[in-house]
């Protein structure tokens, strides 16, 4: 789901950059304040692991493939703010060093895969009580991909409308196709993420018990 250069209308690209810079900037600020030493190796190994996992596409039928995004996985293990920093780091390296995703579209890619992926994944995961953790993980990962792809489809349609057809893809093609493909890719994401979390629950439960960099409750904010 890496958007290349030249696909989106410049105004849509600019909006993506503005949203990404604000949310990622805030996430870095929160991470810098609340990061603990024991979280650093997990963040680094998880980021590197998601990078290589994104290189392995799986077939979904009809001559189409998908790959793990990993945003929900990062958010569930580290919290959404640290998760977003991890995904942003991966996207920047993919773009600048490997040419995966356009440099002008980095803001939108960060918005669709990083911001939406991490926060939607985290919120859906948190809806479910601990004993239904696997269901929460699966649905959180699926929703992260599905909602991210919907955002991408809306951006494609907006680009098409704003530019009079020079950029983007018409709504009637972009939305059904993007959602149709990603409803299945999201299932792959859900199985992989749930598999990894279940494996870690059995082999390294301490990783799942690590503090998460997430929203503070109003009570915590008042104590501070």
């Amino acid at each position: 789901m890496h958007i290349p250069d030249g696909l989106m209308e410049p105004l849509v690209l600019a909006c993506g950059w503005i949203i990404a810079l604000i949310v990622v900037g805030l996430s870095f600020k929160i991470l810098n304040k609340r990061m603990e030493d024991k979280q650093i190796p997990l963040m680094a190994v998880l980021a590197a692991g998601i990078f290589v996992a994104q290189m392995i596409n799986f077939p979904i039928g009809g001559g189409t493939s998908g790959h793990l995004v990993g945003a929900a996985l990062a958010a569930i293990l580290l919290g959404p703010f640290a998760g977003l920093v991890v995904i942003t780091t991966i996207l920047v390296i993919q773009c600048l060093i490997f040419g995966d995703g356009g440099i002008t579209a980095l803001g939108l890619n960060t918005l669709n895969m990083g911001i939406i992926g991490c926060f939607v994944g985290w919120w859906v995961f948190k809806i479910f009580p601990e004993k239904y953790g696997n269901i929460g993980t699966f649905l959180g990962s699926w929703a992260a991909v599905f909602i991210g792809s919907f955002a991408c489809a809306v951006q494609l349609s907006l680009s098409y409308s704003l530019s009079g057809g020079t950029y983007g893809i018409p709504f009637e093609i972009a939305v059904p196709m993007m959602l149709g493909y990603h409803v299945i890719i999201g299932i792959g994401e859900g199985f992989i993420t749930t598999g990894i979390i279940s494996y870690l629950t059995r082999t390294s439960p301490e990783i799942l018990k690590m503090p998460k960099i997430t929203f503070r409750s109003p009570k915590e904010v008042m104590v501070k």
Partner: peptide
């Protein structure tokens, strides 16, 4: 199993007959 196939966005672009432009940055 998957190497020749494009991902969801690439297939959407292909189905809309969108030709990918040359990238503005060469990695």
């Amino acid at each position: 199993f998957a190497e020749p196939y494009g991902d969801g966005l690439e297939k959407t672009m292909e189905n809309a007959d969108y030709e990918e432009e040359e990238q503005s940055y060469s990695a």
